[in-house]
Design a protein around this nucleic acid. Structure first.
Length: 488
DNA sequence: ATAGGGTTAG
């Protein structure tokens, strides 16, 4: 059953249920999100009349609210406006902890520090949290905006906000630091507190992975050794992490030896191990060895997963030929696998990269027919290729499609498209770039100074002085205006 | 949201 059929089927079922008075009519998060998006965005203005009216009869549930917040993820100001509206005006509805977590994440992405903390306090006064998850979200935001010390401090002070630290939250903060490449900082914290929290296999795995992520495999091996000495047993995850680390660091020979050692020691190697090796060899350009390992896994009775096929298809595109990748794709379908969005993205990219635009477009149509929704990567990648090849109309067409669909443009989309507006060096493209810049600010994204300057220069050079002035005004007050508008 | 495998860009 394809996607549109599924939707139809769902709809008729729901209508039947409502008609029979079995349950309240289902509220459609897509429709509500659209209504919110189409409300005017003037400052201090509440949501649209139409929305206000319909909100009175909408049976609000946390699931519905969360679904709407996710749809509005890339329009943070609207998402928060909606969240605050329900919080204030619907006294019979109280937000769930999970909705608070989403709102906190959105506010943190908009750098609305004050809003983040008032939400946390409100959550606490309603006795809904904050939970370890809330702290994980806020820490991650701190780390990704270049403030790892604040993240650590937050973890150390968690208990002051009514949330006690435990091994799980310790592992989480270490992982957050490692994933953002702040491995030295994580290692420092790990050494200071591993005794207090009785570090376990997960803790050590997080640290081993951290060193591997920054290609410092000797340090990772050191931690592995220490782990064994302290009586903490490494598991398959530990070894798979190490294996991936060798490939990432370009130590192909060591990776192969490590893999052989894993087999020799009768470690029950799994689909993840094999996928790591197939991908690792492929990225290193060793297509033949990648294929050999792929054949070996089937011989050994380890079933490849969609991820394994994705790895193989990707490396065929990059290091072999896109034609062979297409063959592999058809083979996986023939064997009964259902390609996912990553599969399509990898192959569409391969086709575009080879200049096979129409075949790439056909594949996108095919994915939609199969009920596989394109995501950010799909759109952003295609927009990037179209821009590079001066197909600005096609790039803009995809952008429109995102805005009207379930996948709102994100920060990358705006950056890619704005860059694309410079390839033709046309005056009218500069105006579009300026409009995109205004729109992205309105949606809560903060353009880099470079982007502002580039658009300003473009407008000035093409005689759009008045528009340039408008953008200059916006630049000077964009940050402060947002904070005032959405503070609780 | 406690850890490992596919999407980027050389």
């Amino acid at each position: 059953m394809n996607h549109s059929m599924k939707r139809l089927f769902c709809k008729s079922l729901c209508t039947a249920a409502a008609g029979a008075n079995l349950k309240p009519p289902p509220a459609d998060s897509a429709a509500i999100a659209k209504l919110i998006l189409s409300s005017p965005t003037t400052a201090h203005q509440s949501l649209d009349e139409q929305f206000l009216l319909s909100s009175k009869t909408t049976p609000w549930t946390p699931q519905l609210v969360n679904s709407i917040l996710k749809r509005l993820w890339n329009h943070g100001p609207k998402a928060l406006q909606f969240f605050h509206f329900l919080d204030r005006h619907h006294h019979n509805y109280v937000h769930a902890a999970s909705s608070f977590d989403l709102a906190i994440d959105i506010a943190a992405r908009l750098h609305l520090h004050t809003t983040v903390w008032s939400l946390i306090h409100r959550m606490r006064s309603l006795r809904l949290g904050p939970s370890p998850k809330t702290f994980a979200i806020v820490s991650e935001r701190y780390v990704s905006s270049g403030k790892p010390d604040k993240a650590v401090k937050l973890f150390l002070n968690m208990h002051e906000h009514g949330c006690f630290q435990d091994l799980a939250s310790f592992n989480t903060i270490l992982d957050v630091l490692c994933k953002s490449k702040r491995v030295e900082k994580a290692y420092e914290l790990f050494r200071a507190l591993r005794g207090r929290f009785s570090a376990d296999t997960v803790t050590y795995n997080v640290i081993v992975n951290g060193w591997c992520l920054i290609k410092r495999t000797p340090k990772a091996l050191e931690v592995l050794k220490e782990m064994v000495e302290r009586g903490i047993n490494p598991n398959l995850t530990t070894y798979n992490t190490m294996l991936k680390g060798f490939f990432r660091a370009g130590q192909i020979r060591q990776a192969w030896e490590f893999f052989l050692e894993m087999k020799k020691r009768k470690c029950e190697i799994d689909v993840v191990t094999y996928t790591t090796v197939v991908h690792g060899f492929g990225v290193a350009g060793e297509i033949k060895r990648a294929r050999n390992v792929f054949d070996e896994m089937i011989r050994e009775g380890v079933l490849p997963s969609v991820a394994t096929y994705n790895a193989l298809i990707q490396v065929l595109c990059k290091k072999d030929s896109v034609e062979n990748a297409v063959v592999m794709f058809e083979e996986m379908v023939k064997r009964g696998y259902e390609p996912n969005v990553t599969t399509y993205n990898v192959l569409i990219r391969g086709l575009f990269h080879a200049g096979e635009f129409s075949r790439g477009e056909e594949l996108m149509q095919r994915m939609e027919i199969e009920g596989c929704e394109p995501n950010f990567q799909t759109f952003n990648m295609m927009i990037r290729y179209y821009s590079e090849c001066c197909e600005i109309e096609k790039a803009l067409g995809l952008f429109e499609k995102m805005g009207s669909g379930d996948c709102l443009p994100n920060l990358d989309t705006y950056n890619i498209l704005i860059s694309g507006m410079f390839v033709r060096k046309r005056s009218e493209d500069m105006v579009v770039a300026g409009k995109l810049l205004l729109e992205m600010v309105e949606r809560g994204f903060i353009p880099r100074k470079f982007t502002f300057n580039r658009v300003l220069n473009g407008l000035l050079l093409t005689g759009n002085q008045a528009f340039a002035k408008e953008i200059l005004r916006l630049q000077s007050k964009s940050g402060s205006r947002l904070t005032r508008k959405f503070r609780l």
